[in-house]
Design a protein around this nucleic acid. Structure first.
Length: 581
RNA sequence: GGGCGUGUGGCCUAGUGGAUAGGGCGAGGGGUUCCUAACCCCUCGACCGCGGGUUCGAAUCCCGCCACGCCCGCCA
């Protein structure tokens, strides 16, 4: 409804300004502050005051006078408040919202017909997923969900770096060291098992005698060489390590939950010849130069050259990533990548190179986030510093369980929760809190990890919003099946009811904006506002004990719309929506 | 040194040109014979990093400076 009303307001303003013979290039449409009784407003009068030669309030009044609300469905009234033109909703706006909200899929936008690949996480398969990188799957998964809800055909990809030096070191270490010399694994899972070899290998390369290191380096180089030449035997050896570790990491990511439709391996673009073809095309570019024994791209706008081929004709990571992205462009309509801020320069070079190669880079959007650091510094898989995501999730669930149990005694509601419920709620709340904490902030803001903060269940956190969903479900559950037959929005005339309807009405617009801007935190902000509005309604408007039957039914319909809205909003964020808690 | 990003009450955060800067944590006070108190209400607390500029209007745009983070490998 909000989107329709916005279109109507645009039409109305456009028409009014046209009639008054004023410019229509900037309509100044905005959302008014909370205490203003309008859904949309325009500050256009400020801008036109000089042109008209009249004070802004006069201009606003003239503009408002040109608009007849009767010409529109959802526009109920046009008023002015000083220099602002305010647009109030009609009864049909509320009725339409109440009706649209009954759909369990409320908020889902029309199909765009676009296929979009969302690449996220793509962490090197070298060991357990740690919290430093946890922002990537959480933001990436939320973006994928938003794009899906906004009507796109979404596929999630994890790009697997299985061709680099770190992987060669890992393979060498795995084949060289003896399990007996390693510490006990921290967990009974393959990535915790294998990372011990990786750490041992790296320590060896740092500390062993020069002669021994040289010998090890030769073996590592042989592995890299084998990969470059497409040696099947080497590929199989590397794959064993990569696939095993990746399998474990995927298990952890699945707890968030973050899932992937496809794992795209870097070696794929070496083995199918596309990297070689790409190198040929790069060499033909005017910007390609051979300097300091390597082929480089000399960009006009980027100071740093991109080396794409070594003296010995071997390719580099970014060269393969170029082939990877051309594959994306061939396969999908649009591509979104979620990357750590440390990849910014490389991402700019990638985009510039793709552009030089004749690709339409407007198909590509790259979203950056900054690392989660510890108070004492960054986290590293190689060094083994940092907090494992598994540990964070376990701790979150354990603390959530304590909360659930401590609340059992003081519960007003006598709906005996059994052990399965406690387990379920602890999981939903614990994991949800971690996810919500990350997804609700702007990705570019730095985060320093602190246990107390990450595991705070109070107020602006997942459980606050989840609780609203549970409350709504509780009411509907109590009321039974056929409760939502009466959609008479006229009966919902209390301020709290109107506010709730207005908030519900905005949801599709929030989805649209979050999808356009690839900003999941907009949805999180919305859920918070939604929860506040719902809680006011909950306090002031009894549903099951409403004073007459019609009002009760209308309120039940409103609660159903609220449940669908908040449930879908949480769904977009990848946070569970509990039916009871 | 250069590039990119961030800077909002003691702490965390929303708001990126328009109506008294919105929340939360914290501190203090209040609310449950009534659909879940993981809730609600009240009070306390902000020269929006600093200095200039543009504009009728700036947390938001421009310039300079400061602080912090990331990057500036023929690593990935």
């Amino acid at each position: 409804m909000f989107l329709s009303l916005r279109t109507e307001v645009e039409d109305a303003l456009h028409g009014a300004l046209g009639t008054l013979d004023l410019p229509t290039d900037d309509l100044g449409i905005e959302e008014p502050p909370e205490d203003v009784d309008a859904v949309l407003a325009s500050s256009v009068a400020y801008r036109l005051a000089g042109e008209v030669g009249a004070p802004p309030p006069k201009v606003a009044a003239d503009v408002a006078a040109e608009i007849d609300p009767d010409d529109y469905d959802y526009l109920g009234d046009v008023t002015t408040q000083g220099p602002y033109v305010n647009f109030l909703p009609s009864e049909r706006y509320f009725a339409g919202t109440l009706e649209a909200g009954q759909d369990e899929e409320f908020g889902r936008l029309e199909d765009t017909g676009d296929s979009v690949v969302v690449e996220h996480t793509s962490a090197n398969p070298t060991g357990p997923v740690h919290v430093g990188r946890a922002r990537n799957p959480i933001i990436g998964d939320a973006i994928a969900r938003i794009l899906d809800f906004a009507g796109n055909d979404v596929e999630t990809n994890y790009y697997v770096n299985d061709a680099g030096r770190q992987i060669a070191v890992f393979t060498w270490a795995y084949e060289t060291f003896d399990e007996a010399d390693l510490p006990e694994p921290e967990r009974d899972s393959p990535e915790y098992d294998l990372v011990r070899y990786y750490r041992k290998g790296n320590a060896y390369l740092e500390n062993a005698d020069a002669e021994d290191v040289e010998e090890a380096e030769a073996e590592i180089q042989a592995i890299l060489q084998g990969l470059e030449e497409g040696d099947d035997d080497v590929y199989d050896r590397v794959s064993e390590v990569v696939d095993t570790v990746l399998d474990g990491m995927v298990g952890t990511l699945g707890r968030l939950p973050a899932e992937f439709d496809e794992f795209v391996k870097e070696t794929r673009f070496m083995r199918d010849g596309s990297t070689d073809d790409l190198v040929d095309r790069l060499q033909d570019l005017d910007e390609a130069v051979y300097e300091e024994d390597a082929w480089q791209l000399d960009f006009a706008d980027i100071e740093k050259n991109l080396v794409f081929l070594r003296e010995d004709d071997t390719s580099l990571y970014t060269t393969r990533d170029l082939a990877h992205h051309e594959w994306k462009f061939d396969t999908f309509d649009r591509a979104v990548t979620v990357l750590g801020e440390d990849h910014k320069l490389q991402a700019d070079q990638l985009e510039a190179a793709l552009d030089l190669l004749g690709n339409d880079t407007s198909q590509l959007r790259q979203v950056f986030y900054s690392w989660v650091n510890l108070p004492e510094g960054g986290m590293s898989t190689r060094k083994g510093t940092g907090v494992d995501l598994d540990d964070l999730l376990d701790e979150a669930i354990a603390r959530a369980r304590e909360e659930v149990e401590s609340r059992l005694d003081s519960r007003l509601r006598d709906d005996d929760l059994d052990e399965d419920d406690v387990e379920r709620i602890a999981e939903q709340v614990g994991v949800g809190a971690v996810r919500y904490d990350i997804v609700s902030k702007q990705p570019t803001k730095g985060i320093t990890f602190e246990w107390e903060r990450a595991l705070d269940f109070e107020a602006q956190s997942a459980p606050y919003v989840q609780y609203v969903h549970a409350r709504a479900c509780g009411i509907l559950d109590e009321a039974g099946e056929d409760a939502t037959s009466n959609l008479d929005a006229d009966l919902l005339d209390a301020p709290a009811e109107r506010d709730l309807l207005r908030t519900i009405a905005r949801f599709p617009a929030v989805v649209e904006e979050a999808a356009d801007e690839l900003q999941p935190h907009l949805v999180a902000t919305y859920t918070r506002e939604f929860a506040e509005t719902f809680n006011t309604f909950y306090r002031e408007c009894p549903v099951l004990t409403a004073d007459d039957e019609h009002r009760r039914e209308a309120r039940l319909a409103l609660v159903a719309a609220a449940r669908n809205t908040v449930g879908n909003a949480l769904g977009i964020l990848g946070v569970a929506a509990p039916e009871s808690m």
